[in-house]
Each structure stands twice: as structure tokens, then as C-alpha cells.
Amino acid sequence: MSRPALREFLAGCRDEAPLLLGAVPFGMLYGISALAAGIPAWLAQLASAVVFAGAAQLVIVQMLAAGAGMLPTALTSGLLNLRHLLYSASMATYVGHLPRRWRMLLAYLLTDEAYAVAVLRYQARPPAEGPDLRHWYFFGAGFTLWFAWQVSTAFGLVFGAAIPPAWELDFAVPLTFIALLTLLLRERPGQAAALAAGGAVLLFAALPFKLGLVLAILAGLGAGVWTARRLERAR
């Protein structure tokens, strides 16, 4: 790794670090919930390493604990992860030129938190001279979250029984997404996404099974991607 690449990697780690304030309790909550649902500790930890999808992992273990069948569980987690298709469409503009091994690695590390940090770096103008090493920034942000997620899951699995109920780790889920919203509202694509998602939540609030929330996610991400691409073409 060259020095410029290392600087980009460490910058991604640094900028991702504040988001761990919500992600670490979130991972602990997943570990505790997995044990409560009767999932073996080794399998819960393996899921964090392979699946690496915090909200989907938490929903899956909660539905399994409630006795939901495989089909409803798979459908719910699939709908929840549809937003990653739009994340990928947004990031493809910036990483499409990379070798396949890089694209596969970054696709694996693409999460809400990594996207929120990396897309802001990519929306800035590319370096005036020298190679574009911003994929190392993306890698640093994604790796930081991945590592913290593994450690926090393990902590929840090992020490979950000793964590007092008064701590109420459920706060971590909304805290994580509030932090993401704060980051993304700095740019016009994030503002467009927030407006579209907020309007869709109100418009589709009466739909059953919380389908309005799914449609709001899709509307917000679609508006954000469309705005980002218009701004990119205008440059």
C-alpha cells in the first residue's frame, strides 16, 4: 500500500469512527437477541461476518424468536435490504472502473454507514493530479464498521447476560440512523432523499404490514440517486 493510499484508508477509518457510537450498541443488541432466540453463539457470530447487515440480522432473529416462518422472515429481510440496490446504483458511477476484486470487496462492505461516509467523499471533486485513490477511503470506512460489528456482536454474545436491562440498548437502532441522516443532509442528494422519504411516509402511512415504510425507503433512495446523477452530469 502506497503512502497516499494509506492516507485515504486512514481518513475513511477516521470519518467512520463517529458512527460507531450507534453501531456498537446495535451489534451488542443483535448478539443478545440472537442468544434469546435460541441461535447458537457460533452461528450468530458467523452471520455477522458473512451477512454483515445489521438491521436485517436483528429483524431475522426477532422474527425467529416470535415463531415466524421461513418465508415471512426471508421476505421481510429481503424487502428491508432493497435499499442496497440503490446504494449500489449510486456507487457504481464511482467504482465501475475498478478491477473486479475491488468491486466485490466494496460491495461486501457497502452498508448504510459506509455509504453515508463514502458517498460524500466521492461527491467531492476528484484529485487534480495523481491517481484517484478514493476507493481506499471507501475501504477504510467499510472495514472500520465491519471490524466494530464483529467485536460488538461477540461482546453481546459473551457478556449479554451481564448487561443490565436498564441500559436499554434498543436506543442504538434509531441513534444510528439519526447519525446517518445528519451526515447526508449536508448535501443536496441527501436533502432530496429526506424530503421524498418523509412525504412517502405520510402518503403511505395507512398501508398494512408497514409497507409504507418500505416504499418510503425506495422513494428516498431513488430521489437521492437521481439528484446525485443530475449534479454529476451538470459538472
Results as ranks from 00 to 15, higher is better:
Ala200His: 10
Phe177Asn: 04
Val24Gly: 11
Ala47Leu: 11
Glu8Ala: 08
Gly31Phe: 07
Val119Ile: 15
Gly140Tyr: 04
Leu203Thr: 11
Ala194Pro: 05
Tyr94Val: 03
Ser33Leu: 12
Ala107Trp: 02
Val119Tyr: 00
Leu175Gly: 05
Gly199Val: 13
Gly140Val: 08
Phe138Gln: 00
Ala193Arg: 03
Ser33Gln: 14
Tyr87Asn: 01
Gln191Ala: 02
Val201Asn: 10
Val95Lys: 05
Thr227Asp: 11
Ala194Thr: 15
Ala89Thr: 02
Val158Thr: 13
Ala179Thr: 07
Pro4Gln: 07
Gly22Gln: 03
Met104Ala: 15
Phe147Ser: 08
Asp132Met: 03
Arg121Leu: 12
Leu202Glu: 01
Leu64Met: 10
Gly224Leu: 03
Leu64Glu: 05
Cys13Tyr: 14
Lys210Thr: 07
Ile163Leu: 15
Ser48Gln: 06
Pro126His: 01
Phe147Asp: 00
Leu207Ala: 11
Arg3Cys: 00
Asp112Arg: 01
Ala162Leu: 11
Leu181Phe: 07
Ser152Asp: 12
Ser77Gly: 13
Gly222Tyr: 06
Leu195Gly: 09
Val50Met: 11
Gly220Asp: 01
Val24Tyr: 08
Ala234Leu: 12
Leu231Gly: 12
Ala223Asn: 07
Ser88Glu: 02
Val225Met: 13
Ala223Ile: 13
Leu221Gly: 12
Leu46Glu: 07
Leu58Arg: 02
Gln57His: 10
Ser152Pro: 08
Ile60Cys: 11
Ala5Asp: 09
